[in-house]
């Protein structure tokens, strides 16, 4: 069999690499939760449970229909700080601190539940519906999850 020249090898490699990259990119897109779009006003509640403190933002009308959006809204209205890192790939907001309580203190970190179900996607990709209860808890364990 004739040996491929460097140029031919480069072409074969380039094609194989392009196919691999396209396949992986397609896979990444397929496994991402879709972005949440605004669907008007809904009623929802939020409870934030820190280390020895609790804040409620109950039965409010809001246009922020994600677990992250309602947290930011509550922080804005009730005057507590929320810090997060916004990742682009995979897309999602990673909450690092609420009201000065920073992830990692005492081995605990911020996690969220919606209607007692543990959040399985980035909080800004978790859509809320009318009557939902969002809980942000600073905990080490998944106790309390459904």
């Amino acid at each position: 069999m004739r040996r491929l020249t460097e140029r031919q090898q480069a072409i074969v490699f380039g094609v194989a690499l392009t196919i691999s990259l396209a396949g992986l990119y397609g896979m990444i897109q397929a496994i991402q939760p879709p972005p949440v779009t605004s669907k008007g006003v809904l009623r929802a509640s939020l409870v934030v449970e820190g280390d020895g403190w609790t804040m409620g933002y109950l039965d409010v009308e809001t246009r922020n229909n994600t677990a992250f959006g309602i947290l930011l809204e509550a922080g804005d209205r009730k005057g507590f700080s929320v810090e997060w890192v916004d990742f682009a790939i995979p897309p999602g907001a990673f909450v690092t601190a609420i009201n000065g309580t920073v992830n990692g203190q005492g081995g605990k970190w911020w996690q969220y539940w919606v209607n007692d179900v543990y959040g399985d996607v980035a909080s800004n990709r978790k859509e809320l519906f009318d009557g939902d209860l969002v809980q942000w808890r600073f905990v080490v364990s998944l106790e309390g999850s459904a």
Partner: peptide
């Protein structure tokens, strides 16, 4: 582990991030 989460679950959570890392 201190949070009571098993290793298999951590590996499962890692999958989308590993796909990105391979990319």
């Amino acid at each position: 582990r201190p949070a009571g989460i098993d290793f298999a679950t951590v590996l499962w959570w890692q999958v989308p991030f590993t796909v990105v890392h391979v990319l």
